[in-house]
Design a protein around this nucleic acid. Structure first.
Lengths: 251, 251
DNA sequence: CGCTGCCTTGATCTTCTTCAAAACGTGTGG
DNA sequence: CCACACGTTTTGAAGAAGATCAAGGCAGCG
């Protein structure tokens, strides 16, 4: 049993709160669906965006708030979640720089169905919905790219539904770890380290289970040599076997 | 206890299998995101579509098939589902005339992640993906409308995730019934009748539970006067109370 | 150094699944 | 029109998975 319980996380304590103009352009350029644009177009679009820094845990918008803006993560991690009466929040997605969120509604009168919250210190760009809506018309390729991403997200959500409907807690957690590893993992001495503060409770909220069950499952995984983990961090040490647990095989 | 167990379903035994040219234009015009187009544009778009009829239970495409076309339901009901090793299929959505499904991928090389199946006899229009992709460029409003719908579907999927994560089987089934009632319900003598053949097993696959549990819950609902139901049909008789069960209230 | 918040572990209890079998409805063919 | 046969639905009882309740332990921080 690895007796290295100290966190290997090296959270770049970004000055955040504010991101440089330089960073803004770089980020916007890195957004998948803006990548095809010329620098001039990018700069034009950039002028429509405004920025804002958030502290860890700070709420960007709340369920029920009027949905008036379209957001892009510039730095840090932003999580999307839904609340439940019993305080059992459900963590739907963890966004990294370049990903968007917020309102895409045609009928601009809607409310946000989710809550967006800074998971780490974060810098977020946003644009007025009416301004955003002109972009696909002016740059059709951008509209298609956004459609593509929405399609991917819908598929991911459907897959999550399948997991929640049909699989055991162990399997769901294995699946969540794999997805996080693919998205946020960096090869480190401890293994494929998921580069984000990740509590047992966070995992439970993603896998639709309780903190205790998440803890038990992680302990088991650790015993089996699939992962290494400690307070607020998880690293995958045997991706193959973990995938074997998460995937459908024989009947 | 109402002793009316005969099915009140009056399935228009559509000649289906083939839908008239007249119907095609009418359907395309009814598709939310084509509704803004002129008749000429509609007819132009119509020429890119081809049609095909399906028998109940017939598969339109399978998980893993190359995703090359974009589909629109013209008549009947089409369901989207995912398979699981143990044969435990998950029913993701039930589509009605005017709704689309299939590939929206930019990278046209993808595979379908879901299976699409005719739930009733159905007529389906489809268009080559490359043809489809030109539409948002030529009609920006259409692109935005599609985006809007994708957004709605993503939200619905997220809400389903929340339900599956945090609620009891009873609550999930109440929620599913409400959604079906809103989408497919017609006021009838028996109540708000869900106009589609709907087995206990279908409901179980939507709510992420087993046939037996679905049956028990429906029996209870019936005893409580919330619904009326029989073989392959359900009608909601007390929407208020059912909603009370499905919704979050006090902590 | 002690506090706070996260993590672990155990015991109990509820919910739901699983297995099994009987009852019912629907459509079919006599 | 009736009776049969099939698939759906219902119901029961036993079992498992996971939630809940309750302590105790450990890491990091002021």
């Amino acid at each position: 049993m690895s007796e290295r319980r100290k966190t290997p996380l090296d959270l770049e304590t970004i000055p955040a709160q504010q991101c440089s103009v330089q960073l803004r352009l770089e980020i916007l350029g890195r957004v998948p669906f803006f990548s095809g644009l010329t620098r001039e177009n990018l700069e034009a679009i950039n002028r429509s965006f405004r920025e804002r820094g958030y502290l860890p845990g700070e709420t960007i918008y709340f369920t029920g708030d009027p949905a008036a803006r379209f957001y892009v993560v510039a730095d840090g991690r932003v999580k999307l979640l839904r609340h439940t009466a019993g305080g059992k929040d459900v963590l739907l997605d963890m966004l990294t720089p370049g990903e968007f969120f917020g309102s895409l509604e045609l009928s601009g009168e809607g409310e946000h169905a989710e809550t967006a919250q800074a998971h780490t210190a974060a810098c977020v760009l946003s644009i007025e919905q009416s301004d955003f809506r002109q972009i696909p018309g002016r740059f059709p390729a951008v509209g298609l790219a956004i459609l593509d991403i929405m399609n991917q997200r819908l598929k991911a959500a459907h897959e999550l539904v399948r997991q929640l409907s049909a699989h055991s807690a162990e399997r769901r957690i294995a699946y969540i770890l794999l997805r996080l590893g693919d998205k946020l993992g960096k090869p480190r001495k401890v293994g494929l380290l998921i580069e984000v503060p990740l509590s047992r409770d966070d995992l439970a909220q993603m896998a639709g289970t309780t903190t205790e069950t998440a803890s038990r499952v992680l302990s088991q995984f650790q015993k089996d040599g699939l992962i290494d983990s400690g307070r607020q961090w998880v690293a995958i040490t045997n991706r193959e076997q973990l995938a074997g647990l998460a995937l459908d095989e024989l009947s």
